[in-house]
Amino acid sequence: MPFTTESSPSNRRAYTVLSLLLAAVAGAVNATGFVALGMHTSHMSGNMAALGESIATGEARLAVLAAQLLLSFLLGAVCAAALLDASRHRSRGRHVAALMVEVVALAGIGTALTSSPGTRAPVLMWGLSFAMGLQNALVTRVSGAVVRTTHVTGILTDIGIQLVRMFAWVRDGARGQGVAGVLRGLRALPSAIEFERTRLHLGLGAAFLLGCTSGPLLYVHHGPAALGLPCAVLLLLIGLDLSPAARRQPDSASRA
């Protein structure tokens, strides 16, 4: 499992870069999709709630759209899992197929928005939801279910839990040493390996926010070409995954 103290530092760094960049991509795609299409396409809790509300109020059209987005997200997750299974024996490039499918989906949606400005065709929302389901499943598999990049709820929950753990770690380490012990604990806290996941989740939140900010800004000024930025980041990750430096042990899900 890449995000444990037992994995090598280089392995953890590689997966940290992957996770942070994908969180930025998810933020950009989700926020840009809302500006362009009027719908958040990575938040399945909201879409499930919208499905229930629409059924309750008799809004058949909205209920169908919410159900389609849920199904698209699910199909994206299935696609990622199948592609990862098919490439699980490779020493490098295991993520390339899934990342390339996401690139094609986002590029296709950007092209469609360019050719038909102002369109809010449901198929474009399906495509964005599919891409987010694919990405979320990809990162979930390779991180051993430690990381999600398409929504922030779990990230904030983990940060809250870790804040209490950090407080307890400093308190227990300083027991009987007074203020000096507390100060030593606080100085050691940022580099303590026990809280590497805390730093990771803080970074994921910041990366998602960066994507949510930069995506709409680029869309306002450059239109659908803004989706070229997440595509470029995904292509960068593909290049890194194919590089000789990317050779590493199979992820925990692949060994299962």
Rank of each mutant, 00 (worst) to 15 (best):
L217D: 00
E6I: 02
V179N: 15
L235E: 00
V101C: 01
I161T: 14
V17E: 05
S116H: 04
G205S: 01
G203T: 11
P224D: 09
I109A: 10
G173T: 07
A86H: 01
L65W: 06
I238Q: 05
I238M: 06
L51G: 15
S54E: 10
T150N: 08
A50S: 14
A192M: 10
D158L: 15
W126F: 07
R88G: 02
A26M: 00
L113W: 12
I161E: 10
R199G: 14
T153G: 02
I155D: 09
G239R: 05
G33Y: 07
G33V: 06
L134C: 04
G110N: 03
V182Y: 13
T119P: 00
H95G: 04
R197V: 00
P230Y: 00
C212H: 00
L128A: 12
N11L: 11
S116R: 06
I155L: 13
R165S: 06
G33Q: 03
L62H: 14
E102N: 05
Q177P: 11
G176A: 07
L189N: 12
D85L: 08
V101I: 05
A112C: 11
G108E: 05
Q177A: 06
A14Q: 08
L70K: 09
M1T: 00
L218K: 04
L71M: 13
S45E: 07
L70V: 13
L22W: 02
F130E: 01
T5I: 14
L22N: 01
H222Y: 08
A192D: 15
S116G: 05
A36Y: 01
V164P: 02
V147M: 01
A192V: 10
V179H: 15
H201Q: 15
G203N: 10
F195I: 05
V25C: 09
E194R: 15
N136F: 07
L156P: 07
V146I: 13
L240V: 01
L204N: 03
E196C: 14
C231L: 10
A23M: 11
R148E: 15
A174Y: 09
V142G: 05
D241K: 08
G181M: 11
G127A: 12
G211N: 09
Q177D: 07
S19T: 07
P250A: 03
L229F: 04
R255G: 06
T41P: 11
G118K: 06
L202G: 14
R247T: 12
G160M: 08
L234I: 06
P230D: 02
F73G: 00
T111N: 06
H43E: 12
Y219C: 04
A246I: 03
L99I: 01
T114M: 10
A24E: 00
G215T: 05
A112R: 03
L65D: 10
A28S: 09
V139P: 02
N30M: 02
V220N: 02
P224C: 14
T140D: 11
G154T: 04
A14C: 04
H43C: 08
D251E: 07
G58T: 03
G178R: 08
L235F: 02
L106S: 02
F130N: 02
A97M: 00
M100N: 11
E196G: 15
S243L: 01
S115F: 11
H43S: 12
A60Q: 14
L75E: 03
P244Y: 01
Q68V: 15
